[in-house]
């Protein structure tokens, strides 16, 4: 599960970078359709969906146990 979340995080990062680049390119050349073409819309949609899934996975994870400082020390940590 951890591995899946990490991969998802990387995918969201890649899509976010691509989306930001497309938006910057669109500022300089809006007639070319950097943000309005079908491909661009697919990139944005993928970003939104994967970001939503990632967010759900992150906040649905069980809370971590209390700090180890509160636990009695284990033999090997000494």
């Amino acid at each position: 599960m951890k591995r899946f979340v990490r991969i998802l995080a990387h995918l969201v990062f890649i899509l976010a970078l691509a989306s930001i680049t497309l938006m910057i390119l669109n500022v300089y050349n809006p007639l070319m359709g950097f943000t309005t073409s079908d491909y661009s819309r697919a990139v944005f949609l993928a970003l939104y969906v994967l970001a939503a899934v990632l967010a759900v996975l992150v906040f649905s994870r069980p809370e971590k146990k209390q700090s180890r400082r509160d636990e009695p020390p284990r033999e090997k940590d000494i």
Binding site: I14, L15, L17, A18, T21, L22, G33, F34, S37, D38, Y39, S40, V43
Partner: peptide
């Protein structure tokens, strides 16, 4: 990977 995705935009066009 993001750069390849941008390159894909031109191929798609």
């Amino acid at each position: 990977a993001a750069a390849l995705l941008i390159g894909g935009w031109f191929v798609a066009r």
